[in-house]
Design a protein around this nucleic acid. Structure first.
Length: 490
RNA sequence: GGCCCCGUCGUCUAGCCAGGUCCAGGACACAAGGUUCUCAUCCUUGGAACAGGGGUUCAAAUCCCCUCGGGGUCACCA
């Protein structure tokens, strides 16, 4: 009988949800779903200085958006709660006491000042920076006396003098560290409140976490925690340390401070289709095989494996995000695209918050027209400005097309044919336009380029007669007549 | 600096554990061409990498060692 599979994502609510955190959550979630296990969310919010309710909320909502809804967590509760560390202090104190009883920790009376000095001098003499274990040799009876006398003290992990520890990391294989390279870290503060490395172990154990999947930045912590597990006499979970996501130039890890793309909010705001984003994120540090890249969530769940996560850090391939999301958008129905672009159009004030039927029809046409140009939905703001803004700057190249020799004359001659429509059938309009150009002995391009300039002020965009349909007969007419005036747009 | 991790096209990666089928595959990006009223889509084609050096071996991207490079971590923070 094997233990149930239980994964956890344990962010600190110190800011927005980091994209690397989102990927950690994704891998945890994927693994849990695949194994029919449980996905737990635990807030590591014991640092009052840095934690905010807003950040907490951002994490909840970010996870919702991504669709990684926890089975157990602060919002959904569960049998091993509470799920916020700030509400578990009593538990940590209780377990800290157990560690003292078991003799796994020893009291340290060193002042912060002495510790600081120690570090400085070690730094100067370029020694390994580590606690010198000065208090480790204090006679227990004397220690007892000093504690009873009210002397300030912390409790440190008693790291064995000899030996080494090896963890079997699912991603990295075996990683070994020698006893001499592990510090006697403080586990219980002067205040009596245990520190992170104790809390995590207690939580993971009490919450029956089977696999700890987290960033590589925790790899060195892991050994300290392994010793804490030993101190309690508990079995360790299985570990897997994910490669870090690096900054755009590969220098250092992606940080919230320096890189806007570190924030999940950026992606939400730009309106990337969430399934595309998830697909892309899964591909940063993991691959299924040598060619498959586009996968649904179900396929991701089915195919994911920690063994295939690679161990080297990676930068975010932003071009690939655009490409993969463009692909997702292209495969959506027009209705879905329309639904997704609507909020952006409303925000721009281009359509009413409660669009009329006419407006809805127009949104749908727009969605249809721009679908294969979109890579994220907010892009509709730049792509569709020409539709909703009656006046605006001409693209220089568009203006040139309009000012070409004979362009305005041809346009003027064509206007009656154009106005005859039918505006609801671009194919027919095009046919008629071609016939007209033929009749005039002109190439189709001679007509089409100035017309596009007049209608859209641009040189690129949807099919010209789709543009005309989008604008409608009246607005189209107005724009052409305006463009016909010499010097217009100059 | 100590310890730990990592090092394949510009980027994300496959291949490495179980050496030969790899003069290294895919994708994105880029370039060229085709389709087209433009852009985008779509199709075709192209350039582009095993960090370096030693070994082991008939044979090394794959195994071993060294060097170099990058990253992480060294708080009474999490």
């Amino acid at each position: 009988m094997t233990d149930p599979i239980r994964l956890r994502f344990a962010p600190s609510p110190t800011g927005y949800l980091h994209i690397g955190g989102a990927r950690t959550a994704l891998f945890n979630w994927l693994f849990a779903r695949q194994k029919g296990g449980t996905f737990v969310l635990r807030m590591e919010d014991t640092d009052e200085e840095r934690n905010t309710d807003a950040a907490r909320e951002t994490i909840f909502r970010g996870l919702d958006w991504l669709g990684f809804v926890p089975d157990e967590g602060p919002e959904q509760g569960g049998p091993y709660g509470p799920y916020s560390q700030s509400e578990r202090q009593d538990i940590y104190v209780e377990y800290g006491r157990k560690l003292i009883e078991r003799g796994a920790v020893y009291p340290c009376f060193c002042s912060r000042e002495r510790l600081t000095e120690l570090r400085e001098s070690q730094k100067e003499s370029r020694e390994t920076m580590r606690y010198d274990r000065a208090c480790r040799g204090i006679d227990p009876a004397e220690a007892r006396r000093r504690i009873d006398g009210g002397e300030d003290h912390t409790w440190r992990l008693r790291v064995p003098d000899e030996g080494s520890w090896t963890i079997k990391d699912l991603i990295r294989g075996e990683v070994t560290v020698e006893a001499k390279d592990i510090e006697d870290i403080i586990l219980i503060r002067g205040s009596g409140i245990p520190v992170y490395n104790l809390a995590v172990v207690v939580d993971d154990h009490l919450m029956k976490i089977s696999h700890v999947v987290r960033g590589e930045d925790h790899l060195t912590n892991t050994f300290k925690q392994v010793l804490v597990y030993e101190g309690f006499g508990w079995k360790t979970p299985i570990f897997a340390h994910l490669p870090l996501i690096l900054g755009p130039t590969g220098e250092g890890k992606l940080s919230k401070r320096k890189h806007p793309e570190a924030a999940l909010e950026l992606y939400q705001d730009k309106g990337y289709p969430v399934d595309g984003l998830v697909n892309w994120l899964a591909l940063v540090g993991w691959s299924f095989d040598d060619k498959t890249e586009v996968m649904t969530r179900e396929e991701l769940i089915e195919r994911f494996s920690l063994e295939r996560v690679n161990s080297s850090g990676a930068r975010l391939p932003m071009d690939k995000l655009d490409w993969i999301c463009g692909d997702y958008i292209r495969r959506m129905t027009v209705e879905e695209v329309a639904k997704q672009i609507e909020p952006f159009l409303v925000k721009k004030g281009w359509i009413a918050a409660e669009p009329s039927d006419e407006e809805r029809a127009r949104i749908r046409l727009l969605a249809q027209a721009e679908q294969d140009r979109l890579r994220y939905f907010r892009q509709i703001e730049e792509l569709a400005a020409w539709v909703f803004e009656e006046e605006g700057e001409f693209e220089p190249k568009a203006l040139k097309n309009l000012n070409k020799e004979g362009a305005r004359e041809l346009l003027a001659a064509y206007l009656p044919t154009f106005l005859a429509g039918p505006f609801d059938d671009p194919a027919v309009m095009e046919e008629k336009a071609r016939a007209f150009a033929d009749q005039q002995g002109q190439g189709f391009g001679k007509l089409v380029h100035p017309l596009r300039a007049a209608l859209t002020r641009k040189t690129s965009g949807p099919g010209l007669f789709d543009c005309a349909r989008l604008l409608g007969p009246e607005e189209s007419k107005r724009r052409i007549e305006k463009a016909l005036q010499p010097g217009e747009g100059a």
